[in-house]
Design a protein around this nucleic acid. Structure first.
Length: 617
DNA sequence: TTAGGGTTAG
């Protein structure tokens, strides 16, 4: 049509653009945009729907500014943005937890005279739930009722998911009952959310009970249910059961999808079974699922875990040249690898590289860099990134707060630490036992024992969880101030709470006793300490044994070594097909290769995709 | 032909 200079019909254009944008292939979104501009040149007048499809495309690419600019462009063509235009962008902002930008957009929407509909409300509820602001989510639901927009099964499902995210599974189940009473029937998503929630909180038997329940109630399981179960088996290290589950599901007509394969690949990598992970990557492609960003990120993580940072960095570059989409997780993964390796300079360089590519870090990546820099003693740099995070409009989570509170305490800025703690509470984030321990240790090391005791007692009276570290922190604080009797008292309280004193407890007390010359008691404690150490000995031995066995698996026979070396050499020469032949032959002989060989095979599989020409459309 | 929930990577 373009060649014949014929003007296409608007519906044809919309359908074509929509198809391209939703078709998950490389550059198809850019192609969709090309069709949009070509159509205009051919005289087609786009309508709101056309713009909305373009907006979706921009959002899928993560180009939010461009998406917003389309809202402005509509006027030139005599049309106006509608709820769909705004809800699309709003949804993506919420998905990415960029609440500040979402709020600004909502304001703009209202100024344009558009009235939020049920979708708009539901998107806002999902945004609040994603960052754990459940009180705010509830407020939105109240507002919905006031505006005569009744919450539906989507609204409830999101709130249930929010509760599960906070590990408040009992309340989530209660909400499910509540919705049933209001005649909003739970669907497969409700069940999937709750099953996943139970698995997350360690309630696997309740999770499986819900699987039965949904069957009894006639709610059909789907691929997502399957994937949640497979994930659980993987997490438990039950890889045989995980793959058996996939086989059984397949027989019952629920076909594995991309998520299933990625879950299994990750499971095998985590279990150190790299050969099986590689086979699963091959299987995925054979079944017609292209490996994607998540597969790539899984392999990147495995490389980093194996401390093969050079390989990871090379894979990041070459995968990008081969058209894999890199995202902030890809960068965040390598970033974590560098930080763990102690190379802050490389991590910071990668951070700026990511920013230059306009890839926006999520809260997890911010937490990685902030925590990593703190660990390496680069406090100033860490605070700098924290400030950058606050400016970005992302919402800090409890990991962020705990990290910064820890830094403040370490620097003796206890007041600042408490300010942050209060802010955390304000944001309806519940300070956990980590936050408590950090604050207590900050107070004790600044000699503010009274305040520490007050916090400790408040914490207990509120029924919050405390652990051995909490007790040890207080005990050593008391010992440092010479309050030995109080320390003894706390040791017995600790035992009453079924927490066994460990060698930190005893050495704190021992130190205090010797420094005031109570040598007899000190000796008595010493023997107790030895008992504890002896008691710990067997578990230490088991650990050592484990280390040995895992090392043992690294010892391969000469056949294995020869094959592995040959494969690595062939891959290095770019002779992937020959390497595969050796792999298949050794597989048939039942030879297990060493990890490095599997890793080069995995890299090879990713790199097999043709290198893109430099002129990208 | 356009917008909202649950599953995979750190």
């Amino acid at each position: 049509m373009k060649r014949l200079k014929k003007k296409p019909n608007l519906l044809t254009c919309n359908t074509l653009i929509n198809g391209l944008i939703k078709f998950p292939s490389l550059h198809s979104i850019q192609l969709g945009k090309q069709v949009f501009y070509d159509s205009i040149k051919l005289g087609v007048i786009p309508q709101t729907t056309t713009f909305n499809i373009m907006i979706l495309g921009c959002c899928l690419e993560g180009k939010f500014n461009e998406a917003i600019s389309f809202i402005g462009k509509m006027k030139e063509f005599g049309c106006f943005p509608d709820n769909v235009s705004y809800n699309t962008i709003l949804g993506f902002f919420c998905k990415k937890r960029r609440l500040k930008e979402a709020g600004d957009l909502l304001q703009d929407m209202k100024e344009k005279g558009l009235i939020p509909n049920r979708n708009t409300f539901n998107i806002v509820v999902s945004g609040y739930c994603k960052v754990g602001w459940l009180k705010e989510a509830r407020k939105v639901i109240d507002m919905m009722v006031k505006n005569d927009v009744l919450p539906d099964v989507w609204t409830y499902n999101m709130l249930i998911n929010g509760l599960c995210g906070e590990e408040r599974i009992e309340e989530a189940v209660k909400l499910r009952d509540e919705m049933e009473n209001l005649n909003v029937l739970p669907d497969v998503v409700t069940y999937n959310t709750l099953i996943n929630g139970y698995f997350k909180c360690g309630g696997s038997s309740e999770g499986f009970r819900l699987v039965e329940e949904m069957r009894d109630k006639g709610v059909k399981m789907n691929a997502v249910t399957n994937n949640i179960l497979v994930k659980w088996y993987c997490k438990e290290g039950k890889m045989d059961e995980a793959s058996e589950k996939v086989r059984v599901m397949e027989e019952s007509g629920i076909l594995p999808d991309k998520v299933t394969y990625n879950t299994l690949i990750n499971g095998y990598c985590k279990a150190g079974k790299l050969g099986e992970a590689f086979e699963m990557m091959e299987m995925m492609e054979r079944k017609g699922f292209k490996m994607d960003t998540i597969t790539l990120n899984t392999i990147l993580h495995t490389l980093c875990k194996e401390r093969k940072l050079k390989e990871a960095s090379e894979l990041l570059t070459s995968a990008s040249n081969r058209g894999y989409l890199l995202d902030e997780v890809s960068y965040g993964t390598l970033l974590a690898g560098y930080l763990k390796d102690g190379t802050a300079d490389k991590a910071l360089k990668l951070w700026s590289e990511m920013k230059k590519k306009e890839i926006v870090p999520s809260i997890i990546t911010y937490n990685t860099i902030i925590g990593g820099l703190c660990e390496l003693g680069e406090t100033e740099q860490a605070i700098c990134k924290y400030n950058e995070l606050l400016r970005s409009g992302l919402v800090p989570d409890s990991t962020t707060y705990n990290t910064i509170i820890h830094v403040y305490c370490k620097e003796g800025k206890v007041e600042k630490a408490f300010e942050l703690h209060n802010k955390m509470v304000e944001k309806s984030l519940k300070p956990d036992v980590f936050a408590c321990n950090i604050l207590l240790s900050g107070l004790c090391s600044e000699g503010m024992l009274e305040k520490a005791l007050k916090l400790f007692n408040t914490w207990i009276s509120e029924g919050k969880i405390i652990d051995i570290v909490t007790h040890n922190t207080m005990i050593s604080g008391l010992c440092k101030e010479g309050k030995l009797e109080d320390a003894f008292h706390l040791v017995s309280e600790m035992k009453e709470r079924n927490l066994n004193p460990d060698h930190y407890t005893y050495s704190a007390i021992l130190g205090a006793l010797t420094s005031v010359g109570r040598t007899n008691e000190a000796e008595e404690f010493m023997s107790k300490m030895v008992e504890v150490e002896n008691f710990q000995q067997p578990s230490l031995q088991i650990k050592e044994q484990n280390v040995k066995t895992s090392e043992m698996t690294e010892v391969y026979d000469s056949d294995s070594n020869a094959c592995s070396e040959q494969i690595i050499e062939l891959c290095n020469q770019g002779r992937y097909k020959d390497a595969m032949r050796i792999f298949e032959a050794s597989n048939n002989k039942g030879i297990t290769l060493n990890k490095s060989a599997y890793i080069v095979l995995m890299e090879g599989l990713i790199k097999r995709r043709k290198r893109l020409s430099k002129a990208v459309p």
